[in-house]
């Protein structure tokens, strides 16, 4: 195994267990014969990787300018109200984590968000409620 597999391995760990724990980082470091600091450095560099446990579904709502112009902040507020959590938090039942993110390249459907890997555009507070209901 070469070092260039590192990001893929971290991503796989996150996909499988929802986050990258200290133990997982240590294990990856051993497998690739890397200092654990390198693994930690890469894990914490990227905004879609997390060292703290996340919910079963992760909502990334776009806060960049094109979405902001189309009331993106109102959509973030709608999610806060719907789930009772602020950005960076996870619901107590572990169903959702909610994050603000930078441009997701769906500016033609602004305001937009990702729930896990799916993109949802042309959001309204009502639509958000409907979308979130479809997730277990």
């Amino acid at each position: 195994m070469e070092r260039d597999q590192l990001l893929g391995m971290i991503k796989e760990e996150q996909a499988k267990n929802g986050s990258v724990s200290d133990g997982a980082m240590a294990h990856i470091a051993q497998t690739l014969h890397l200092p654990i600091g390198n693994v930690y450095g890469v894990t914490t560099f990227y905004s879609f990787l997390s060292t703290r446990p996340l919910g079963r579904h992760v909502i990334h709502i776009c806060k960049s300018v094109p979405c902001f112009l189309q009331n993106g902040a109102m959509m973030a507020a709608a999610i806060e109200k719907e789930l009772g959590i602020s950005p960076g938090e996870t619901t107590s039942d572990g169903r959702f984590s909610f994050e603000l993110t930078n441009c997701i390249g769906a500016c033609d459907q602004a305001p937009a968000m990702l729930v896990d890997d799916e993109v949802y555009g042309d959001l309204t507070p009502e639509k958000i409620g409907e979308i979130l209901k479809s997730f277990e």
Binding site: R3, Q5, L6, L32, F45, Y46, S47, F48
Partner: peptide, 18 residues
């Protein structure tokens, strides 16, 4: 894995290299 800078070519190469 979510980093704007990785669109910059030298950062992109570092990212591929792990």
């Amino acid at each position: 894995a979510g980093a704007y800078i990785c669109g910059e070519e030298s950062a992109l190469m570092n990212s591929i290299e792990g």
